[in-house]
Design a protein around this nucleic acid. Sequence first.
RNA 1: GCGAGGGUUGCCGAGCCUGGUCAAAGGCGACAGACUCAAGAUCUGUUCCUGUAGGGGUUCGCCGGUUCGAAUCCGGCCCCUCGCACCA
Length: 955
Amino acid sequence: MASRFKETEEKWQRRWEEAGLHLAERDSRPKFMIIFAYPGVTGYLHVGHMRGYTYVDAIARYKRMEGHNVLFPVGTHATGNGAISLANRVAARDPDTLDYLMRNGCPEERVKDLETPEGVVEFFNGVYVNDYWKRFGFLADWRRFTCSIRPDYNRFIQWQFRKLMELGLLVQKPYYAPACVDCGPVAVDPSETDLSKGGNAEVNEYTLLKFRCGDELLIAATLRPETVFGQTNFWVNPDVDYRRVRVGDETWIVSAPAARKLSYQMDGVEVLGEVAGRELLGRMCSAPMVGREIPVLPAGFCDPEVGTGLVTSVPSDAPDDLVALQRLQKDPSLLESYGLDASAADIEVIPIIDIEGYGPCAAADVVDRMGITDSGDPRLAEAKKQVYKDGHHLGRMNPLCKGYEGLRVEEAKERMRDDMLASGEAELFRDLSEEVACRCGGTVMIRRVDDQWFIDYGDPDLTARTKSHCEGMDIFPAEYHHNVQAVLDWFRERACVRKGNWLGTRFPFDEEWIIEAISDSTLYPVYYIISMHANEGSISPEQMSEEFFDHVILGRGGSDVVSRSTGVPAELLEAIREDISYWYPLDLNLGGKEHMTVHFPAFLFNHQAIMPEGKLPRGIFVNWYITGKKGKISKSKGGAQPIPGAAEKFGVDALRLYYAHVASPFQDVEWDEDIVTSYRHRVERTTRMMEELHAIDGDEEGSVDSWMLSRMSRHIEDARRHMESYDLRQMANVVYFDIPNDIRWYLRRGGRSRRTAGKALDAWLRMACPVTPHMAEEAWESLGGEGLLSSAPYPSPEGSDPSSELGESYLRDVLEDVNEIVRVTGMKARTLHLYTSPEWKDRVQSMAVEMALAGELSVPALTKRAMQDEEVRRHGKSASEFAKKAAQETARRSAAELRRLSAPIDELSLLQDAKGFLESELGMSVELHDAAAPRHDPQNKAKAAMPLRPAMLLE
RNA sequence: GCGAGGGUUGCCGAGCCUGGUCAAAGGCGACAGACUCAAGAUCUGUUCCUGUAGGGGUUCGCCGGUUCGAAUCCGGCCCCUCGCACCA
């Protein structure tokens, strides 16, 4: 069955291509330019990634039908080391990598092409374009495809950086970055694009405290420099061999791993020799800031991989320290086994921080509360976290902390750290919270980079202008429209170049550096307007000089002058300039939620900084993910559903509808094949229903026909409205769910007008085209439509008919009421008597509605007015009672409901028309009566008749 | 911590901004019936509790408030999710 989809899909994709629907050329129509944030080409994508791309194609298709000239270009991003590391693994014939390629359908003969980074990029460019985007029926202008490592693109990025320099937004200063010892800088993040291990690691900033011990300094690393007043002793792991290291003119003692890490962050670090931890025991050292002499004691928990492998002991606030100390105090033999006097542990805990909800020593409280007695207790980590958290937020330094008493811990931490740094008693040291390994297998550590270039996104003027521009943008979801303001504020300088084995654009001011992945992907939408000429060979990368871009993008210089200096024909320069002024700004940039704090702000800032007024982006759309059962479907780890396989299995239209409708785009969705299957069924049902509509060939028309057309008009209006705010889900709900429900009712009611069905079908097909274009085209053709549906106009509403809508809902209400009575009573009735409301009640009711709309409705007012009516007054008490009831009930109605109720319908003739329908639906004969003069009313039901609520009797 | 978002009836998911038509759309699932040799598909009905006349009762994280009236507005509480930097 699967091949059935593919054949149809390919047929229409070919026709669209032949008709050139995807090509975008400047003309007199209003334009619409849309992109999705181009993906990084580091491997196969999975079904989840198609979600956002599909939104873009559907929006582009809608805009095209709606009358816009649409530019939808695509490209890929290859900057970084992803392709390099994949190429290396392929070249090394790594079995996991080969397996990954095979599983995703890489032809065996192509594997050898993947041994170079360029080969990897070109291969995947082909996969993305052909197996993903074209396969899904996207109408993108393929001529404009670009990739961030192509020479022409590089020229554009260099121009961008020249502009940033010109604007004074490039600054240089030292920086500490995670880096692989072999490959250079890497990104540490959970998606582990660059890594093979440790993506969740955080960078901790330790304060290195110096403890003078003879001529040497014992170096303890701490995250809590504010606790120095509580130091009682120093911890050394007796079983670890430490290193004696020269740092400047000081001699430090730290663990071997720490010595290595330090050498990446400080100058002149030189290992002098070893010193056994055991040898340090029992010595005295001088604690920084407080100048107290404290003893060096043994502790097994000192890990040479963490910090410096040496720890200062603050038993008042560190549960680990407290427990270790108590242990030594309880068991004198421990100290004696190291040749120390048991009295060495005669230490009083020094309370230094007052924390709400704790005694003077928070650590003691927590340890007692949790019943921890042993250093090996795994709950110590939790205890530590608790004390740290509460101390940090709630704690205040007590009077023992001279000079800092009364300060909040948060504040004291910074002040004390800075003071010790200034006095030379401390240094800073950055380390990763867990082991991190590069894709190449090398260790990742924090390295100092002295002359790092940054883009200064912290610039106050740029920030202010960008924020102000964003207020007027269309940003979805609305929360992000709000939040982006905070994100822009929070965005600071960003390291924008890196050294090492990387693909990307060379930094124009120092070719040693390569521009990193975020920074070369901010302004690129405008380049899609130029890339076509590079792709066609009419402009070479060398011709893309600073003057060239200055001219076509910024309008600087005359085309003749620029033509002379670049050799690009002046007419072409003019044409590109006009193209840019026509297509730009970008109307919508769509990207996944991971872009909210990285790509989108950089995209906004760069446009604001470089582009002239009027060329600033108009819209951003953020989409959430499709996830796997166990969290995010990971691209780098593979194992997810390959895209072509899913297309084969479910059909492209079903997938497109799934993406569009399965949930709000602003929410993650778990991939579930059963759900996708149900969308496949939905597409099939839609097709069948379209055929059914087409088969209608009657000429008779009734009230249900005006109802059908009215509903359709309303649906068109709603679909358009939803698409204007890019709300595909609501739109799809109308087109694939609400419309079929109405059509079912139309058929059930016996609707059989060729004209009505034809009109409804025509509009319906057009509305289905943006999301399920293949199926819609196929139906359009087989039902005799002219030309390509994809280039046909979107339908327009033709006005609704409130009376017929009210009439049909009235009929439904009657059916429901009868059903309910039958269900509740269990009667098998043969005859249904319906008594429609007497005319005088209708009159009172419409008075009520009228008065309510005018805001003058009250029980006495209505009663008074009703009783002025001869006809009504004749009904005496029941008239005034009804007026009271009508006033009360009408007063509760909303304005929309009142308007709905004010449409006039003639209940009796409506029921008369629908009598046959009711009889066949209910399986009983129906007798109609005017409640004012019932022919048969043995149970005196007629008096209960109300407007829009006929009384009924079942017999 | 900083910033943001959320908790709705079996499940998914609307509604909340702009309080009354909300027992609360739609889908999925389930049950019953029709059609059918049968299955599937399709159609109809039901799917919080209750009721032999179209009704009544209790619901929208918890507690309280505003209001004639609250899923919707306000305050407090509990719980959950996401981003936090060189990952397009």
